[in-house]
Design a protein around this nucleic acid. Structure first.
Lengths: 143, 143
DNA sequence: ATTTATTGGTGCAACATGCACATATTATAG
DNA sequence: CTATAATATGTGCATGTTGCACCAATAAAT
């Protein structure tokens, strides 16, 4: 049965992994943000004061690459650097502009998604919300 | 409530979007496949006889880039070219080797995922499977 | 038969990435 | 307290990937 759960999840995740959607989205929202930057923005939104190393680790790119991407995003005003307690660690947080951008991305994604749920009754939605929320919480435990 | 559904999905999708996992995975499975090639393999698995253009559109990269990636994957034996009915269109399908690789990736992802479900009872799993399968089917309707 | 549209391949310049190494800071050992 | 090790990031450089503009081949439309 875990197999079925996983198969379905694989389909769902694959469906959402369509950078083309994000491009159109960013264009429509008139946000001048390269799609390559989105993973950084998303993670900065989930985890304020995230460090270069944590970003690199989560996104799966070399820290040097992430460092240079973050340079750009800070310069462009999407991220803000936080005061350094440990001087080695550069931590960044979404700026207000960044938060607005992330929100717009979510809203646009949601709009595209909402259409697909047309056939769901209120009870269906309620169940879906409950099940997904638990799954999200489970996945985010620990690591 | 749709908002909550979407928030949870966003979290779940973000969790799975960790290329680092795929790297480790491919290494453990001893599959010499660059992570950049995975989206192509995955989509070829979902949609046999997929064309360069469809791949490019779904993955969000330029067709020229995809064309060159596909060159490599064919050369390396992961993909097979299908006989051309329309001579303009190059269609590819997973080779047996490619199918095995995709399966291994799924199995490895599943193993990492399964650990997280430790707290789910059989009933919980059953419900999760049912709800996710319906969602996956809903998302895959039409285009 | 001619024109138009579709599909994808190629040269080229720009950008992004990883590696190896350097630097700065903090933690640890003695 | 000092010396050493560990951590976190930044930089130069070589390599790889990407998109753009254009071209060639094929198919569809007029």
């Amino acid at each position: 049965m875990d197999n079925e759960i996983f198969e379905a999840l694989f389909e769902i995740v694959t469906f959402f992994n369509q950078p083309q959607q994000d491009r159109d989205l960013l264009k429509r929202a008139e946000i001048s943000l390269e799609p390559a930057a989105l993973p950084i923005i998303v993670r900065a939104g989930r985890q304020p004061e995230i460090s270069i190393g944590e970003l690199a680790n989560q996104i799966g790119r070399n820290h040097s690459s992430v460092s240079r991407q973050v340079d750009k995003l800070v310069k462009a005003g999407w991220l803000m650097e936080v005061e350094r307690r440990d001087q080695r660690i550069r931590r960044v947080t979404l700026s207000q502009q960044g938060q607005r951008a992330l929100l717009q991305v979510k809203v646009a994604r949601e709009a595209a998604f909402r259409q697909r749920l047309a056939d769901y009754s209120d009870a269906d939605r309620s169940e879906l919300a409950r099940v997904l929320q638990r799954l999200a919480a489970t996945l985010n435990e620990r690591g």
